[in-house]
Design a protein around this nucleic acid. Structure first.
Lengths: 182, 182
DNA sequence: ACTCAATCCTTGAAAATGTCAATCATTTAT
DNA sequence: ATAAATGATTGACATTTTCAAGGATTGAGT
């Protein structure tokens, strides 16, 4: 799995008896009390930094999306279904690095909510193209706003240039990800 | 939750019976066959890009660390135990964004292998300071090399400047992640 | 000194996710 | 036509996350 994480949104209810790390979690997203450790060797690992920023971002994203009954996963699927690309489930699985069976569950839920629909592929009837319905598109538009606001909030301490630079470097690293392996 | 993932290394053994996505997988590792989807709206989401790059990196990291009997998690803990900071388990949990109970399991394993040890906190005997043993430090040094090589491999398509820039922006985003806490 | 609440680590159990094989329907190659 | 391969789905199993509860210890207030 993921690897350095714990990012899902937690219910707002706060246990009383034993609280583990909840005490602070509304106020902070990644402002660890353990800043002492920040100059350990791993703090310069890009992998570690990615994990940490990603984890913190997931918390914000999921919180922002909860209002729409979505999580990062379902939001991603819905977003992809909103393009005019009619992605197949397999494409969704590959693109999102998920197992095909997880896509089934995700789409089942979105379909039951009337947000997307499955249509047989025109050239290959085994595959199912996933497209958003009208209401799905409307919901997506609203959720997208919230997600973008969450992103902006998380990156508030960066300058516009830094954000642009980050985005472009990440895109480059992600999309040209593969020389020759295995 | 992790969020967009599936990153653990899989055993090299390949099932025979039903092969699903094997046909292509020799050619790609993250070079998705679904590059069509790359110009969807979410492809510019920094959160999404972080998830994807992090996921891909985890695979490489875990593969590189497997040789030492470590995974990203245990490697991180070992690395932190190698500093002279004597982190407590709670600090490790906060720093790594993990539940304290997960730290217990991680350290149990490292301790059984003789790589780290727990000492009672000098000022507070409830807490346990985790420090690496001599062998732990030796193993860490070797593992660190492998991890850095994996990182370099993953970012091979970026220029040195881009890598430096990425690192510094990530650090800034991670460490100043918080307006007002505590 | 004594009590009470809070904190640290630990345990165990429940919920959520990840992994994988097997199956059906369909397509593609031989 | 047959056989192998592929897309979607299901269900089983493993791993991870999340959470509550417990013992030990500390610190605050009385």
């Amino acid at each position: 799995m993921g690897s350095l994480n714990n990012s899902t949104t937690r219910p707002a209810t706060r246990p009383k008896g034993t609280m583990t790390l909840q005490a602070r979690d509304a106020a902070e997203s990644s402002g660890e009390a353990s800043a002492r450790l920040a100059d350990s060797s791993i703090s310069t690992d890009i992998g570690f930094l990615l994990a940490k920023l990603h984890a913190a971002g997931s918390v914000l994203n999921n919180a922002a999306l909860a209002e729409f009954g979505l999580k990062e996963r379902s939001y991603s699927v819905l977003a992809l279904a909103c393009g005019n690309l009619g992605p197949t489930q397999r494409e969704l699985a590959e693109f999102l690095s998920l197992d095909p069976s997880q896509i089934v569950a995700l789409i089942d839920e979105l379909e039951h909510r009337g947000l997307v629909e499955r249509k047989p592929g025109p050239s290959d009837r085994r595959q199912k193209l996933v497209t958003a319905t009208k209401t799905g598109r409307t919901l997506h538009a609203a959720a997208q706003k919230a997600a973008q606001a969450a992103e902006a909030q998380q990156l508030a301490m960066l300058t516009g240039e830094e954000v642009a630079s980050l985005r472009s470097i990440l895109r480059k690293a992600v999309w040209s990800a593969n020389p020759a392996d295995r």
